[in-house]
Amino acid sequence: MYEFSYHKSASVDGAVEAMNKAEDGKFVAGGQTMLPTMKHRLAAPSDIIDLGGIAELVGITVEGDSINIGAMTTHAAVAASGDVQTMIPMLAKLAGNIGDPAVRNRGTIGGSIANNDPAADYPAAVLALGATVKTNKREIAGDDFFTGMFETALADDELITSVSFPKPTAAAYMKFENPASRYAIVGVCVAKTDDGIRVAVTGATPCVHRGKQLEEALKGEFSSAACVGVDVPEDQMNADIHASAEYRAHLVKVMTKRAVDACT
């Protein structure tokens, strides 16, 4: 890991101020992706601004029909939350299956979605549930947040403060996971929401996306059989040592069918 300067602030404003002063700064949340990336020298920020001391970014609150999760809330805390388990059990289960227990004790929801790893789990939930990402500057609709591989709508000095998930009528997330990393080779989140049926696909392509054709098919008939005839184009799919594009395209349909079955 290359050298860097370290800053820790107890407030959002203090963290943003440190970022603005830094030459090439990076916010760090739980660091479970950031630190391995820096060790590999794939990232070499001049300054690290640690968000671990900002108490207001931690916690889970129920606000009417939504659940608001502070950006620095760990995966372990989301998985163990009675409120999340009751209102959106799919989300608790998803959080409890990220990485491994030690990673879940450090990794955070804000860090996960700000990083927008193509194979991360949380982006699928944000998109499928139509969540709202709240930052120190504005509120960003889930549909507008993920803009490309490791790219989001966040500005350099913009910090996620919380994510608000509306309670769905039903939802399920199915992941075909890499057995070593537990990252999604393909993960599909299906949700019945006030906004209709939403399908979000992670792991398959360079960025999480809505499966619009699957949504159309499920609108007609919400059953796994309705997905059979949907065309999932292979040319958009990721291909690597873990799975070919053809296999990932196949998995998108299989995971969607399993998620639909788990919803009903």
Partner: peptide, 23 residues
């Protein structure tokens, strides 16, 4: 040294963490 193996697990404030992935 890549957060996979768990040989470095310690407890910080009572919770298990991979001490190779924490400053």
């Amino acid at each position: 040294d890549t957060s996979q193996c768990g040989a470095c697990v310690v407890h910080v404030n009572g919770k298990s963490v991979k001490s190779c992935t924490m400053l």
